[in-house]
Each structure stands twice: as structure tokens, then as C-alpha cells.
Computed example of a mutant assay.
Amino acid sequence: MPNFKAKIIKELTLPFEKDGVSFLFKAENTNITLIFTQVLEQSFFLQIKKEKNTFIIKTDKHSKPSKIGYLQKALKVFKENFCEGILNEAFGLKNNALVEQTPLIVKDFEELLVRLEKEEKIYIEIGFGSGRHLLFKAKQNPEILMLGVEIYTPALTQVAKLAKAHNLNNILLVQSDARLLLSVLKTKSIEKIFLHFPVPWEDKPHRRVISEAFCKECARVLRGEFELRTDSFEYFDFTLKEFLIFSKPQFLLKKNENLEISSKYEDRWKKQEKDIYDLIVWGLDMPEQNQGEEKFDFANLYLNANQIKAFWQRFEKKSIKSKDYFLSFRNLYESEKGFILKCAFGAFNAPSHAYILLGKKTKFLFKNPLKTQENLKALEELKHKIEQFS
């Protein structure tokens, strides 16, 4: 992550604007100073942290801009105008530049949803790994968008390069937890979902992609089929049982079926003479709730400074855990705009983070959180806690 170290931070006279970068106000607590920064259409925090006799200046990781160049420009302007005694700087990109430059990789859900709007047919592959199956399907079906979901950067960059080399324009890749991705997709917007050779997590089943909540999201977003391919009979059986929560699911079960393309893992399992299981599911009932249509806001929620301090005294650094969501109070910062609360919340496997401005008008800084069920439940709990002091 781009950053630099300095011996001295000059007096911060804000707002300050230069070369298209605006530093609008600061927010502080005993350990950290945040600088609210704008570069063109994006807003984010620069973070100043003191360690011994050194200041470290970098981006706040939970508000960082999607374009790394914006951050680099902001750091450069801040360094040249507010810092002395520069000890070192690291403004270079650590990740493969392809992640930032190629249109095949999308990191922002808002951009992803805009790009999906114009697509008539979409297939999703979860955890595409080396990309053999994803690329094969893209070649077979040029009229269908192949949306690949992966959490590992090397897999994203490798498959993006291969797609570019083969002139495949119907591939889009997103770095995300698949469970989080499904929660933001529109109802009945996906033709097929492929999950091939997922990690079975036999000792930690709670870490599996498959769960009751995942199956319900599949039912909501799918127009067609879900397809599991695995060498683990236990995972195959577990998935079958999870989909039996629906009233009239339809299944096609296969064993040791040879596909036109196989992954490197499948090649390995076949050499070891392991059985391969396929489970294809369709005909799933719609869940009762449509997450995408739910709303949340902090309307009519007002706290004065004394109420905010009392609230923080009660909940500082504390966490609330429920069966399917959590809420954690991370930090409180004071600024001329009011107090800023930093929280983590939502699903245990895919936490969200937000900065919330408390005061005459309570609101989210930066983007509103995704409207997943876990996020909505956690935010309702947060609102309830704040209301106790208003």
C-alpha cells in the first residue's frame, strides 16, 4: 500500500486545495488523525499515525479509493505541503498493474452492477482457480457473459491475461467472497452458477461456501441451474441436504462423468482414481424476502456532544454478536463536522466497515453499505443503540 514516513507534520490549515486534490477537514483521536480527502469524484481518508518519533502517512484501508493513482496523487500533495524530514516513501504499486488497468477485472460492486445491466445472459463460476473451465465456457458461449468470482489476486491476474491472449471479451472477473456477491445481484438475473471443486472444509463446515443462506440466495438470483462438481462425497451429500430445504427442488445426480474440459485438480483426482460427483439443481422456490429492495437510513437521529461521549463510554471497543451477524465499535474521532464513528458489522465471513457522522444529521461518510440481510440487521441494532442516548 502506498505510504511514506516523515519526521515532522506541519500545522494542518484546512481546507486546502492543490493540483486537483482537496484536503477538507481532519478527524482525530488520541492515536490517529484522519484527513478527509477528495480527488475528482472520489473521497477517502488519509491516515496519519505517530510511532515513536516518526509519522506514517498512508490511506485508511476501509475508505481507500478504487483508483490507486488518486491515492498516490493525494500522498504526493500532502508530502510536499505538510511534511518535513521525509525518511522513506513507497509510492509504487505492489499488486500486478493488470488488476488496476484491465477492464476484465472489477473491484467495485457499483461498477459491476452497472456493467451487468446490459447483459442478457450471465453465468457465474465461483472460485475459478486456473480458469480452465471459465475460459472454455466463454469460448463455447460467446453470447453469454462469464462472471468469475475469486478471492485470490494471482488467479485473477492469470485468467485476465489468458482471456486477453485469446481475445475473449465475454469474461468479467471480480475479487470477492461469492456469498457477498450473490447478495447484491438482482433477482432472477443469472442463468447458471458453477461451483467446481470447492475446498471441502470437512473439519470446519462453517467455512464452506454452501449454507442455507447461500442456497436461498441461489434461489433468488437464479433463472436456471446451480452446478456442483466435487471429489468429496461428504460435500456432495451436504450440499444435497442443504438444497432440500426447498419444497420442490429438482436434481440431476452424476458420478464420474467426463466433461469436455477438466481442471488441474480434477486431473489429479482422476490419477488417484478418486470418484467425481456432480449435483445439478433447479426449480428452487423464491425466498420470502427480496434483499435488494430493503432500505436503511438514520432519519431523525440526533445526538449532541455529551450524548455521543456517553454512548462511546458505554460501547468503546465492544462487539455485539448474534446468530447471523455482528456489530463492532472500532473507533471514535472528533472533528469540526462532528464525531465520526467507525464500525465493523454484518456477516462473519464477509464483514463490512463504515464511517458514520454523528450529530445534527447522522449519516454515512463515503458509500452506503451493501444491503445484505446481515448488514441491515447489524445497522438496525446500531441505530437502536444510538437511540438509547438520543
Rank of each mutant, 00 (worst) to 15 (best):
K188L: 08
R115W: 01
Q158K: 15
N169K: 15
L181M: 04
D177G: 09
E119D: 06
N88F: 09
K188E: 09
K188V: 00
E120L: 14
G127V: 06
E89M: 12
A160K: 13
L98K: 14
L113V: 15
A90D: 13
K118A: 13
Q175S: 09
P103C: 07
V184T: 13
L172H: 07
I105K: 02
F82V: 10
M146P: 01
V159P: 00
N95I: 02
E80P: 01
E84C: 07
K107F: 02
V99S: 03
G129K: 10
L145C: 04
I86H: 08
V159C: 07
V184N: 01
G131H: 10
K121R: 12
L104V: 15
Q101T: 11
F82A: 13
F82S: 11
L135P: 00
K118F: 09
E125T: 13
G85T: 09
E110H: 12
I193H: 03
H133W: 08
N167I: 03
A160P: 04
C83P: 02
L147A: 10
L173A: 04
F109R: 14
K188I: 02
A97F: 05
L112K: 08
L162C: 10
A155I: 02
A178Q: 01
L185K: 14
T187W: 03
F82T: 07
L181T: 08
T153Q: 13
G92E: 15
L156H: 07
K139R: 15
K186E: 02
E191H: 10
G92C: 12
Y152Q: 14
L87W: 10
A97T: 12
D177N: 15
L113Y: 09
V174P: 00
N95H: 05
I193T: 03
A178C: 06
V174D: 00
T153P: 02
E80Y: 06
S189R: 09
T157G: 09
D108P: 00
N170F: 12
Q140I: 08
A165L: 11
L172Q: 03
E120F: 13
I86V: 11
K121I: 00
L104S: 08
L134M: 09
E117S: 14
G148Q: 05
I105L: 06
G148C: 08
L135N: 06
E143A: 13
S189E: 00
D177E: 10
R179K: 15
I122T: 01
L87R: 15
L182K: 04
E117H: 11
K164A: 08
N170G: 11
L162G: 04
L98D: 06
F109A: 10
F91A: 05
L180E: 06
F194T: 04
E110D: 12
V174S: 02
F109P: 05
A138V: 07
E89W: 04
L185H: 06
L112S: 01
L156S: 10
K121H: 10
Y152E: 12
R115K: 14
L180S: 02
E120K: 15
E100N: 10
G92N: 14
F128D: 02
T157D: 03
N95P: 00
I126Q: 05
H133K: 15
L145A: 08
L162P: 00
A165W: 03
S189Y: 03
A163V: 15
